[in-house]
């Protein structure tokens, strides 16, 4: 009977939490990140596999590469088109980051946007820029 005030308070608290995404983003037009390619990457035109495939599967490729390199010492990746690539994330010019040397502009942009924190760089270090 006289519990209506408590119930309404509870409802308000619940809906403030529920609608959190709506008022958290209020009036903010969030820009969609566009990963930037280095000149070298642009010149190569295509990564080891087509762009759409890389976009969604790159983490799995890296995972398989890591296991292949570490456990079987296999450093050669043969792509679906039959091209051969060196399997390495960050060592040398023919590694992933030898081409995509702009981690902040390329990797981090989408990772930050979707709150993904890959543990690649717990072990690997970003190749130093001065070398170029």
């Amino acid at each position: 009977m006289n519990d209506k005030n408590i119930i309404i308070t509870g409802l308000i608290i619940f809906f403030v939490f529920l609608t959190f995404p709506f008022w958290y983003n209020l009036g903010k037009a969030s820009p969609v990140p566009e990963p930037k390619l280095t000149d070298k990457a642009k010149a190569a035109k295509e990564c080891v596999e087509p762009k759409e495939y890389m976009k969604v599967e790159h983490m799995q490729i890296l995972d398989i590469w890591r296991d292949g390199v570490v456990r079987e010492a296999n450093r050669v990746y043969i792509s679906k088109k039959g091209k051969r690539f060196n399997m390495s994330l960050s060592t040398g010019d023919d590694s992933c980051m030898g081409c995509h040397s702009n981690k902040a502009e390329f990797c981090d942009k989408c990772h930050d946007y979707t709150s993904v924190t890959p543990y690649c760089w717990d072990c690997h270090i970003e190749p130093p820029k001065e070398k170029k």
Binding site: K55, V56, E57, C110, V116
Partner: peptide, 10 residues
């Protein structure tokens, strides 16, 4: 099957 996460967040 994987989906385009960036597109979904958009």
């Amino acid at each position: 099957t994987k989906v385009d996460v960036v597109g979904i967040k958009e």
